[in-house]
Write a protein that binds this DNA or RNA. Structure first.
Length: 486
RNA sequence: GGCGCCAUCGUCUAGCGGUUAGGACGCCGGCCUCUCAAGCCGGUAACACGGGUUCGAUUCCCGUUGGCGCUACCA
């Protein structure tokens, strides 16, 4: 086991979406490939926006994707708690240290005052306002005296001069002039730590040594590095992933519901497909291979080969990827995954017998590669109904309501009543010779039969379908369809 | 506005000074075929622009333009 420790630190203020999922995946792959640890830490300090529902949804989606965390909620670990809101007491000591060393100072400017000064500034200048360091020059004595008076204060980090640079695993060397940053608040007037500070303290305490996150954090990085150093710690390694853009060209965000992972689960996508797709967003295997299992990704994946270009999410390619993965599932596996959907729709019961299971597998086998998503199984619900089929009116008009259709169905009914065994082979023989006898191509006979039996113009192979349905249902449906004919 | 990052087919990408600029998705056409999928074959389509450097730039450098991100006592 190596000592690589990575983490995902989502805030439960929305559902897990593709962007966060990809960051999670890259962290997970990195930990797995290195034999390190993947820590899940929940940044729920924003009590207004964080909810337990979101937290549970995130955990569920992570599990569904197969991104198991080694430490975090529910599994615990040596450096918990893993909910930031439960780590509250840990920060005060660090703030005291920074105050004592002079790396931080009390700021008595109220938010209102700051707002006022900011407002005055923006009306005259185009550049953004930076904290004017009004309280930075307060002596320690003055500062303590004011605090004793009961004046409320925030704690600001005294940003040193010079430059801060780091070698990012994907971005290369990134350098900032420290004068770009104002003295950031690390503790609010109520004593709670702000994001950048809490992250650093938690990462230190959780022994995180490799930070893999979205490049929207890139300007936070120098601030955090300064904090790590002020706390006497060596900063971790950083890798900033390019962002994923929605098709409108803007970053994927929590507010775009269509890209929530849970949504794809409900639509019948496979987790393997999602994982495979997001892995390839900004990264390509050296041999150009595109269909990669989690295991293959683990060995192939290289953080340093990630492109720095933001990539646009393409639902079409995801859909294609899903088809590839559905095709890879064997019949038993496919059936297992289909079962919950069929149950939900009441098409099969909670308990199924061995015979039902066997029949279901035959259905799945006959449907073959026609499922683009698991949910597409519902297109085939006529397999599961006793007698009634919903007839598609367009199909009926196009096929059954044509001259001759009635004769074909009547003839077929007779032939199929008489056919000795209802196997695909003998059905094919019977139907083809029936068509010959009528002087028609097989297709001309099969299509009315298809509509009669399935209700639509598209279905799995007709002979297999008839065989599976059985003589009784087939004849019933032909009779019923006869009402539409001619 | 400032700072940072980025720039190859519509999209995801390969390329790492000399290539007919390759692959995948999508789209179009064909084959197969009982329909629909799947599959197979073929086609469409790109180096943002301008300067350099070089015998030679998609590739290196600079600039322009464009895109995205960040710029809170949010995370």
């Amino acid at each position: 086991m190596s000592d690589i420790r990575v983490r995902l630190a989502p805030s439960p203020t929305g559902f897990l979406h593709l962007g966060v999922a990809r960051t999670a995946l890259y962290n997970w792959l990195t930990a797995r490939a290195a034999g390190g640890s993947f820590v899940l830490r929940i940044e729920d300090t924003d009590r207004q926006r964080s909810t337990d529902e979101f937290l549970q949804a995130i955990l569920e989606d992570m599990r569904w994707l197969g991104l198991q965390w080694d430490e975090g909620p529910e599994v615990g670990g040596s450096y918990g708690p893993y909910l930031q809101s439960e780590r509250g007491t840990n920060y005060a000591g660090y703030i005291e240290r920074l105050l004592a060393s002079g790396a931080a100072y009390r700021c008595f400017c109220s938010p209102e005052e700051l707002e006022e000064r900011r407002g005055a500034h923006s009306s005259t200048e185009a550049a953004a306002w930076k904290y004017d360091r009004k309280c930075e020059s307060l002596s320690t004595e003055e500062s303590i005296a004011l605090a004793r008076e009961g004046r409320s204060f925030a704690v600001r980090f005294r940003v040193p001069g010079g430059r801060t640079a780091f070698d990012d695993v994907v971005q290369g060397r990134v350098e900032f002039d420290n004068s770009e940053f104002d003295d950031l608040v690390i503790a609010r007037s109520d004593g709670t730590p702000t994001y950048n500070f809490a992250v650093v303290v938690d990462d230190i305490e959780m022994r995180i040594n490799y930070v893999i996150r979205g490049s929207d954090h890139i300007t936070n990085t120098p601030r955090q590095i300064m904090l790590w150093r002020a706390l006497g710690q060596e900063p971790p390694e950083f890798a900033h992933m390019p962002l994923i853009l929605a098709q409108d060209g803007l970053v994927l965000s929590k507010r775009r519901g269509a890209v929530a992972i849970g949504e794809y689960r409900r639509r019948g996508y496979l987790p393997e497909a999602i994982v495979n797709y997001i892995a390839l967003l900004g990264w390509a295997a050296s041999d150009g291979g595109e269909i990669l299992s989690p295991d293959e990704l683990t060995t192939e994946f290289e953080l340093s080969k990630i492109s720095r270009t933001a990539s646009t999410f393409d639902p079409d390619k995801l859909a294609w990827m899903n088809v590839q993965w559905v095709k890879k599932l064997d019949v038993a596996d496919r059936t297992d995954r289909l079962l919950p959907i069929l149950r939900e729709e009441g098409l099969v019961g909670d308990e199924i017998s061995g015979d039902e299971r066997a029949w279901l597998e035959r259905v799945v086998n006959v449907i073959d590669d026609r499922l683009k998503t698991l949910r597409d199984i519902l297109e085939f619900d006529w397999f599961f109904l006793a007698t009634d089929v919903d007839y598609d009116s367009i199909a009926v008009n196009k096929v059954l309501a044509k001259p001759g259709a009635g004769d074909i169905l009547a003839g077929l009914h007779k032939e199929l009543s008489a056919v000795s065994d209802f196997t695909p082979e003998s059905l094919e023989l019977t139907i083809r010779s029936f068509a010959d006898g009528m002087g028609l191509s097989a297709g001309k006979v099969i299509q009315p039969l298809r509509v009669a039996v399935t209700g639509g113009t598209a279905s799995p192979g007709m002979f297999e379908t008839l065989s599976l349905l059985g003589r009784e249902k087939v004849l019933q449906r032909i009779e019923k369809a006869g009402e539409f004919a001619d």
